[in-house]
Each structure stands twice: as C-alpha cells, then as structure tokens.
Amino acid sequence: MKGKPEKLIVKGKRLDGRKLDELRPVKIEVGVLKRADGSCYLEIGKNKVMAAVYGPREVHPRHVQEATRAIVRYRYNMASFSVEDRKRPGPDRRSVEISKVSRESFEPMVIKECFPKAAVDIFVEILQADAGTRTAGINAASLALADAGIPMRGLVSSCAAGKVDGQIILDPMKEEDNYGEADMPIAMVAPDNITLLQMDGHFTKDEFKQAFELAKKGCAQIYEMQRQALIAKYGAEGKR
C-alpha cells in the first residue's frame, strides 16, 4: 500500500477532486437477484455492495422466534477479495459488530408486528471496499427491504462524516479514513430518527456538531437517490 500522502486536502479539494461536503458518485439498482425476495446492488465511489432480503419466512432455529413479532437478522460479510490484501473469509470481530449495529439501525424502522413468529433475513455482501462499507451496506439493505415488500416506517439512509487535515468532510474514502483524524458514520430515517451513530477518533464538541449536521445532509442526499431508485423500479408498474 502507498504511504501517507503529505496533504489530504489541497486548495479546498480532496484527493479525488471532491469538495469537502461532496458525496462520491452513487449507482443503485434494485431487484437484481431473482431468487431473493428483495435485493439491491449499490456502488458509492469504489465501494461495491450487494444486499439480499429473504422473508418474512419461518424461523430456524425455532427457539429464537418471537410469538408476537418478527425477528430481524442481519449479516454483514466482506468477500475475501474485497480489500487489497486477501481478507480471511468468515465472520470476525469487526463484521460481527457491524452486523449488530446495522441490524439495530433497522429494527426500530421495520414494522415487526405484521409478521408474528417470522424472520426477516438481510444479507449484505461487500464485494469491493473503500471505506464506508457499513453505510453502503445499510443503504442497500434498506432498498432490498422495500423491494421485498417488508412494511417499514421509512427508508433508512446512512452516511459518514470525518475529519482530515483539521477539516470536517463528508463521506471519507480509504485514504481519508486511514490517515484522517476521525470518522463518524450515522444512519437515519428522515426527518430526525437517528438509528446508528458511531465515532472513531477525536472531535471537539463543535466539530462533532458540525460533522453530525454534515452527515445528516449526506443522508438526505442519499435518501433522494434511494427514492429515485425505487421509483425507477416500480414507477412503470405503478403507472397503470
């Protein structure tokens, strides 16, 4: 891997030419897997993720089922070829944690009472990683859930803000994540339901507020793209 670049921000522009408050280019496709109940493929910058939703379906093993509501299960997995050095396949400390926080970002938004005794299984596969895979995974999973027809209180949108060279930036990429001073992913449902908030590194109180507001703005942009992706898939069908 290359060493640390001298400066991450030059003349108000970042290494890839973005402005400080600019997202990486996003590409979304809903309903790409035929055998899944709902699915979504999403790219943001160099991140490539695939989400699949199965369910509501019967719960196995039986003892984890709930009599009055559905359970939500989330598996975040990085493909062994998703990073520069081969990742040892299978769940590890990091992916178990991300699976848990991602699941919790959906649990309050899925209307679980609609499906007693059932399970909604979400699988997120990271095919290529370049910082911000948990947020990309959540964005894709949210659309896959909508595609599967699971009742929700709203689409979950997720985005990170960070700090590099002393400045607050939106949607850090790998170099900025590795050599930056802080990284804060959030997930939310508009207008103000925050369902995920993590932070790595150091912010002052004011910086935190600034980063939080910036990440919220990023989520709003992502939400608009998610909305368009769903309309692209279902717009034609809804027209009749």
Partner: peptide, 23 residues
Amino acid sequence: VYASVCGVVDRGEKIRVVPLTGK
C-alpha cells in the same frame, strides 16, 4: 398517516397502499 410499503395509493373510503411486491 404514512405509507409503510412500496405501492400504489388507493384513495377510496380509506387510504390504502396496494403493494407491488411482498409475500
């Protein structure tokens, strides 16, 4: 009242969303 699924709005006696997907 908010929509909970993807679908087409039917504004009859009650507002309901006819789903376009789901089990």
